[in-house]
């Protein structure tokens, strides 16, 4: 299994907003244990999806030169379960960015994909803080290679018809 919790980037306004979708699938192994007989997308992985959405938005600001690390979940509210066959949409907005890091907010919406319901339902909000880890206050050194924006990240961009240089 690959650590990719969004399927496609559908909109990007550089330095302002990035929108991604995630299709919840019965093919995901973990969902059969969460919970046995009642598969539900785990909230922690939903937050990870928001973090990937928001993190790509933050990374794009500096052409992915910074190592953008999730540092703090400022706020996370999810009011409805996401079930197999449903689609999640994460709309991340850039609240603040400087040399040290960035603050983001994200709206979480759900489409049930039922025949009589084609609306996006607002189901929550996830606000995050990211650190540009090479600029950390403690002065620790990290590897030169940008381990954050690696192969999985490039695969997501490619699947969305984007390449890092143009995002």
């Amino acid at each position: 299994m690959r650590w990719m919790w969004i399927d496609r980037i559908v909109e990007h306004e550089p330095g302002a907003r990035l929108v991604a979708v995630k299709n919840v699938s019965l093919a995901e192994e973990h969902i059969h244990d969460h919970f046995p007989g009642t598969p539900v997308m785990p909230g922690a992985l939903l937050i990870e999806g928001v973090a990937q959405t928001s993190g790509i938005m933050v990374g794009a600001v500096n052409q992915f030169r910074e190592k953008v690390i999730l540092a703090k979940i400022t706020k996370a509210m999810i009011e409805r379960d996401a079930l197999p066959g449903q689609t999640l949409r994460y709309t991340a907005s850039l609240d603040r960015i400087d040399e040290a890091g960035a603050a983001t907010t994200a709206a979480v919406e759900l489409r049930t994909n039922e025949p009589d319901d084609d609306r996006w339902h607002a189901i929550g909000q996830v606000d995050l803080i990211f650190s540009h880890v090479d600029q950390n206050m403690s002065g620790l050194d990290f590897p030169e290679e940008n381990f954050v924006f690696g192969e999985n990240f490039r695969a997501i961009l490619a699947a969305s018809g984007l390449v890092p240089e143009t995002v």
């Binding site: 540092a71 703090k72 603050a103 803080i129 650190s131 206050m137 403690s138």
Partner: peptide, 14 residues
């Protein structure tokens, strides 16, 4: 913790 200072700085600015 150290990362909270980043959050606090952002919130103070806002």
């Amino acid at each position: 913790e150290s990362i909270d200072f980043l959050d606090i700085v952002f919130q103070l600015e806002k």
